[in-house]
Computed example of a mutant assay.
Amino acid sequence: MLERTAPERFDTLPDIPEPSENPILVGHQRVADMLAGAYRAGKLHHGLLFAGPPGIGKATLAFHLANHLFSHPQAESAPARFSAPDPKGQAFRLIAQDAHPSLLHLTRPFVERDKKFKTVITVDEIRRIQRFLSLTPHDGGYRVVIVDPADDLNVSAANALLKSLEEPPPRTVFILIAHSPGRLLPTIRSRCQIVRLQPLDAPDLAGLLRQFGAAEAGSDEEIAARAQGSVRNAILLSQFGGAEIADVLQKLVTGRSFDAAEALRLGEAVSGRDRDVQFSIFNRAVLDMINRHAAARAEAGDTRGAAAAADLWDEINTAIRDAETFNLDRKQHAAGIAAKLNAAFNA
């Protein structure tokens, strides 16, 4: 059983450490070395956009970079590589507890009144940046702002963040985590150095699963193929019924004749009490399926089909957020989306 020190987030999984409390960085050594070298040379960009699929370690890398900056405030004497954070060290413990005075981690806020997390990062969260940056650094070192993920910024929050990125104070680094960087404001992307992270390879993914006690039967190659190089996907597939949900959804969407009864059974499986993770798995599987469909259309030269898929992604993403915000019937939500995708993919 994990002894959690980090606050619970909107995407927390039971017994899986948060990125802020994970001392192990796997699969991104080249990028980590590039960042360490840039910092040592005094060339670290003030705005970093870590882009890549969900669950591959983007946020973990962000916290490791923050730990590196806090541990070595003088860039010229910093080591050329990240050293493994000391879980017993003060900086690591403060970062894990969301209590480090030089770090601001912005994500979907928890609403005490409603007892649930918001579906977006609001402008009120982004306004915390100005208050944070108005304070004098406690040790004269770097300050780090992590937006996780920037995909969740609403329009007002994105515009407010842009203002902070335009005129950053000295010795301040913004790290934006983005699963779909193309959906961010172009003006935000233009003010950041885009750092693309790749999915984990099979051995790295299998090793992390064993570390988390979530190893899945089958070869490393099978795990990586199914999870698309994402340890989060692998955990959801093997521990929370994600494989079954994805398989049923695939059959419903690709079938020539839509099975309404099976769609309702799927809706029942991802709704009800203690089914928040399963509901999230379903919604993520839907969006990923549309992404793959759009990519396939674009690769085939069907620009109209790719554009239609992009519009469908926006429509479904709005429906997902409405279902979460207004507590709509999840069973009908899932069945209705399955029907819509079946009609769109078989048109």
Rank of each mutant, 00 (worst) to 15 (best):
N154I: 05
F132R: 09
S156K: 11
K116C: 03
Q97S: 15
I126R: 04
R143A: 05
P149W: 03
R143T: 05
K163R: 12
G141N: 09
E167W: 00
L165M: 12
E125G: 07
F132N: 12
L165Y: 03
L104P: 10
L94D: 13
R127W: 02
H138V: 10
G141L: 08
V111S: 08
I121C: 11
H105W: 13
R93N: 04
L103P: 09
N154S: 05
I121D: 08
T122V: 14
T122L: 12
Q130N: 14
V147N: 04
P109S: 11
I121R: 12
E112F: 01
F110Y: 15
V144D: 06
K163G: 09
I129E: 04
T122S: 15
R93G: 02
R127H: 15
K163I: 02
P149S: 13
T122C: 07
D152F: 00
V155F: 04
L133I: 03
G141R: 03
A99N: 15
V123E: 11
H100D: 08
R131W: 00
V120F: 01
V147G: 03
V123W: 10
P149F: 02
T119G: 13
I129A: 11
F110P: 02
D151M: 09
K163E: 10
V145Q: 07
L133H: 01
T122K: 15
R113Y: 03
D139N: 13
H100L: 10
R128W: 02
L165T: 07
S102V: 05
F110W: 13
G141K: 07
R113G: 08
